[in-house]
Design a protein around this nucleic acid. Structure first.
Length: 488
RNA sequence: GCCCCCAUCGUCUAGAGGCCUAGGACGCCACCCUUUCAAGGUGGAGAUCACCGGUUCGAAUCCGGUUGGGGGCACCA
């Protein structure tokens, strides 16, 4: 797997990494991570860190490659950052130049653009016309005197390239249509197509599994492999992950950064399960799989050929499943970073059963439990007194009903303030007064939490504790009396 | 424009010639459960397997074409 640190770990890169990982684990292979940072202008250590950290977060581990951003490598073929392998690339470029497989090109961007324009006008494929191949020594001397720095281009032989793709089977390209592409920039920094091929050989890569967007780059790589006299690896091109409009998933139209999903509280297990099924299935109707189970079942040949739309709804569903499958202790631990520090660990643990089956993402928890850390005044400010009124009930009636409940609850000691008992007492009072349970519980819920959608009422009361429950009911009664005008 | 790839419910997919009057899941709808919201349960709508030809006793499955979609054609990766 060879990500480029020019942005945070992308969903598509994560999925490609996952497939590489599963393929390597399933077949007993060696999984190599290589950082492709030849685009020095856009590559940063921060992005490298984001990629490494989030790959780890997903549970994807590699046998060879950088272990820490900017840090040490593990493996016999290092360094695993291309920025640290420049001598090798320079050597191979010289070799290609010497053998006549590559040549210098002095064309300026303007000249190249002009050629492209002409070709476009003639409705031809845009490609380099090889003009620098016909340069005289005098031309070259003149360019050098002008201070022009040449790029190096591969002389691409006009031949038909065929290869057996791991996923797509036989694929065929005509390299006569390709044009001599640049392999080393004018500033001496080599380009992606060139270094990939060199490193794959140097690192003993036998299988290249990458996105379908590289399918049409493969003939370039094969041309390079042949010019350099390398061994050709097997290629496998996995389908793209798509935006809802079926275009290649992009930052513009979708959330593509894995970090963002992590921050919203998606579990790595859910993410992995979801990603694995975007383009692959075990061929059965099972759909919940751990990373280990996936590695056990994954077959590269049964990866699909067509692209798959990223369906956030389905991810949400899976995340919920994984959250519900956690033990209370585990969930409390995962929830901790998402909740305010003011909420102590013991309370988090006690709150877990209340929120567990209501969570889609971990980041949904703070809103669900906000009433626990908000002050009584804050809660009271969240609702209008009229919102406490069930249909057909007056301010005075509701105030009186709440007061009755309040007094009954006040009769309970701190130790008896448990959900079961609270519910029994409250229901009994509702019955005595001839109130429908919902009509009584709705204003109670609003009074206690300031919200109409909350975790179960009596469990919430238990967490709030006697004192705050009574205070908040009192506050609600106060608001009702004030809004109800003079009582008769 | 040129080259390449792809094509089963809205979405993710099962399906490798008869098991398919096409199965599952998400989403959607209804009902049940229920103090709200969820979760859970039950049921339902939803795909003439893109289209047209062919091969075959028989095709979603094989072949050809058409259409549609996507990707690539950089001194990005």
């Amino acid at each position: 797997m060879a990500p480029s640190p020019t942005g945070p770990l992308h969903i598509g890169t994560a999925r490609t990494s996952l497939y590489n990982f599963l393929f390597a684990r399933h077949t007993g292979g060696t999984y190599v991570l290589r950082i492709e940072d030849t685009d020095t202008a856009r590559s940063t250590v921060e992005y490298e860190r984001d990629i490494i950290d989030n790959l780890r977060w997903l549970g994807i581990t590699w046998d060879e490659g950088p272990q820490v951003a900017g840090g040490e490598d593990i493996g016999p073929c290092g360094p695993y950052r291309q920025s640290q392998r420049m001598e090798l690339y320079a050597r191979e470029a010289d070799r290609l130049l010497a053998s006549g497989h590559a040549y210098h090109c002095w064309c300026t961007p303007e000249e190249l653009e002009a050629v492209r324009q002409e070709q476009a006008a003639r409705k031809e494929a845009p490609r380099y016309d090889g003009r620098c191949l016909r340069l005289t020594d005098a031309d070259r001397e003149r360019f050098e005197r002008e201070g022009r720095q040449p790029v190096i281009r591969l002389k691409v032989p006009p031949e038909v390239i065929r290869f057996d793709d791991l996923i797509r089977g036989e694929v065929e390209f005509d390299n006569a249509l390709l044009g001599d592409f640049v392999i080393v920039r004018a500033n001496g920094v080599p380009l992606y197509h060139f270094v990939v091929v060199i490193d794959d050989e140097a690192m003993g890569i036998t299988h290249v599994v990458r996105g379908e967007d590289h399918l049409s780059n493969t003939p370039k790589h094969i041309a390079l492999i042949r010019a350099l006299g390398y061994t050709q690896p097997r290629f496998g091109h996995i389908p793209l992950i798509l935006n809802p409009d079926r275009s290649k998933m992009s930052k513009r139209k979708s959330q593509t950064a894995i970090t963002a999903y992590r921050e919203e509280g998606y579990l790595p297990e859910a993410m992995v399960n979801f990603l694995a099924f975007l383009g692959w299935s075990p061929g059965t109707e099972e759909e919940i799989f751990s990373l280990e189970q996936l590695a056990d079942r994954f077959e590269i040949a049964s990866v699909h050929k067509g692209g798959a739309v990223f369906d956030a709804e389905r991810l949400n569903y899976l995340n919920g499943v994984y959250i519900r499958n956690l033990t209370d202790d585990q969930l409390a631990l995962r929830l901790r970073p998402f909740l305010p520090e003011a909420l102590e660990d013991a309370s988090v643990l006690r709150a877990v059963p209340l929120v567990k089956e209501r969570l889609v993402r971990l980041a949904d928890a703070p809103e669900l439990l906000a009433f626990l850390t908000e002050t009584d005044a804050q809660v009271s400010a969240l609702y209008e007194p009229d919102a406490l009124l069930p249909k057909g009930r007056s301010h005075a009636e509701v105030a009186s009903a709440l007061a009755t409940v309040r007094d009954a609850l006040a009769a309970l000691g701190d130790a008896d303030f448990a959900a079961d008992l609270l519910e029994t007492r409250s229901r009994a009072i509702g019955e005595e007064m001839g109130w429908k349970a919902g009509d009584l519980f709705r204003p109670l819920r609003l009074a206690l939490t300031g919200r109409s959608v909350t975790p179960p009422l009596f469990g919430s009361m238990e967490l709030l504790g006697r004192e705050r429950v009574l205070a908040r009911i009192d506050a609600a009664i106060g608001k009702l009396v004030e809004a109800g005008g003079p009582t008769t």
